[in-house]
């Protein structure tokens, strides 16, 4: 029984060392490349307040987190309408055209009244 355990361990060690060999690439200059895997922080539904926040959360956050909006400089409504239309026309955002004005109005306000940094915690 004990023997078998060691056998398994040895087999596992052999398999891992075999794996390791394959998963390292050493470049001529000595840089060692290994497979990589990272995790990225998530973000929640970052807009709140007015009823339109729900539309903004649904559509704006499909492609980017709220920081893109909440760090913008003061822009007038026409500029925001322009930005929202660009998201639809250029980047393929499925926001209905009839919602452009209310979303633009909402984020024109939200972007200049961002939540405090402490509340913008990203996990």
């Amino acid at each position: 029984m004990k023997h078998r355990k060691y056998l398994y361990l040895a087999a596992a060690a052999f398999a891992i060392s075999g794996c390791m060999k394959q998963t390292l690439i050493t470049t001529p200059g000595g840089i060692v490349l290994r497979s990589q895997h990272i995790s990225l922080p998530s973000h929640g539904r970052e807009f709140s307040g007015a009823p339109e926040s729900s539309v903004a959360n649904t559509y704006c956050l499909m492609c980017h987190s709220g920081g893109m909006v909440l760090t913008q400089p003061p822009l007038d409504l026409a500029q925001w309408q322009n930005e929202v239309r660009k998201m639809i026309k250029v980047y393929g955002c499925p926001l209905p055209g009839s919602d452009v004005d209310q979303v633009a109005q909402f984020i024109a306000h939200a972007s200049q009244n961002p939540p405090p940094l402490s509340a913008r915690a990203e996990k």
């Binding site: 922080p41 987190s65 920081g67 913008q72 972007s111 200049q112 940094l117 990203e122």
Partner: peptide, 25 residues
Amino acid sequence: ANGARRLQAFAQKRPLILLRTRSPL
């Protein structure tokens, strides 16, 4: 204006000035 930023560490990164979480800026 509107230049307040958090510092946030991402994978393989020390805390940097966070502009956007996804995709990261």
